[in-house]
Computed example of a mutant assay.
Amino acid sequence: MKVRVGLLNKRTDFTVEQFRSHWISVHGALVSQLPRLRRYEQNHVIHVPQGGSGFKTGTDSVDGFSELHFDHDDDMREALATRVAQSMVANEANFLERVRVVTVERSEVVAPPASGPFNKRISLVRRRSDISLDDFVREWQGVHAQLIASIPGVIGYRQNLIVGRQSPKGKDVDYDKFPLDGLVELWFADAEAPTAAFASREGKKALVHTGMIAGEITTFPVEPINIV
């Protein structure tokens, strides 16, 4: 399964409500017509203070994350070469100021709940500058995955290793131009749960290990909406 994740920034003259309405009703309807699309999820960022680990954060700002799922690379390429995809791109200028895209390899460490209520967070992860990519991946997918999964209150956990970058959308760039290594999805029962989770013995242990491999983690609370 290949997952293409869009990092979206709304037009500055759009309110959150206008952005949300256009993304769901207009753009969502276009994307849902893509051939060979297996799943399409919108994650709307909730702009409220977010409790949690207290780990050093970056300065990145995002208003939404899109997730397009395909079975294979060929399916994804063929879908993005269609007229439907061209209509999608044309429509993006109507409500978006910036679109960046990452292609990820997904690892589901703790299967998330099928339905709510729950609190979902998406985090952008950048490795420490003195850590190689191979060392980061080994530690992140090995020891770190086990530590996060052991934290009380974690009811869903996915790691998404970034293997392709476009900034802006359609322009392939290297790591230096788009320095992100991973995208994390975490689920908790409610908005208060993350603070208690990372204050636990297991949470503190996970944070110590986080500092060994990560330089920045920027977290966004989101509301996921399944379109397809």
Rank of each mutant, 00 (worst) to 15 (best):
V102D: 01
T103K: 05
V104M: 10
V104Q: 06
E105T: 12
R106Q: 14
R106L: 09
S107P: 00
S107N: 09
S107H: 08
S107Y: 08
S107M: 06
E108C: 15
E108H: 12
V109I: 15
V109R: 04
V110C: 07
P112T: 06
P112S: 06
P113D: 08
P113H: 09
A114P: 02
A114G: 08
A114H: 05
S115I: 11
G116A: 02
G116L: 06
P117I: 08
P117M: 12
F118D: 05
F118R: 14
N119A: 13
N119S: 14
N119G: 08
K120D: 00
R121Y: 03
R121F: 01
I122Q: 01
I122G: 01
I122A: 00
S123M: 07
S123Y: 06
L124E: 03
V125Q: 03
R126N: 10
R127F: 07
R128L: 11
R128W: 05
S129K: 04
S129G: 05
I131G: 05
I131P: 01
I131M: 12
I131A: 01
I131Y: 00
S132A: 04
L133D: 07
L133H: 13
L133K: 12
D134V: 11
D134L: 07
D134G: 04
D135A: 14
D135N: 13
D135R: 12
F136G: 02
F136E: 02
F136V: 00
F136R: 01
F136K: 02
V137W: 07
V137G: 09
R138N: 14
R138V: 13
E139R: 14
E139L: 11
W140G: 01
W140Q: 00
Q141D: 14
Q141F: 14
G142M: 06
V143C: 01
H144F: 09
H144N: 11
H144Y: 08
A145T: 03
A145H: 04
Q146W: 10
Q146V: 12
Q146Y: 10
Q146N: 15
L147R: 14
I148Y: 03
I148F: 02
I148S: 05
A149P: 01
A149T: 01
S150C: 04
S150Y: 01
P152F: 15
P152Q: 15
V154E: 02
V154W: 04
V154A: 07
I155V: 14
G156C: 09
G156T: 11
G156L: 11
G156R: 10
Y157F: 12
Y157M: 08
R158H: 13
R158I: 02
Q159M: 06
Q159N: 09
Q159E: 08
N160W: 00
N160H: 12
I162R: 04
I162N: 08
V163W: 01
V163H: 00
V163Q: 01
G164S: 15
R165E: 02
Q166I: 12
Q166F: 15
Q166W: 10
Q166H: 15
S167I: 06
K169E: 12
G170N: 03
G170P: 07
G170E: 10
G170F: 09
K171L: 13
D172I: 10
D172W: 00
D172E: 10
V173S: 10
V173G: 07
V173P: 02
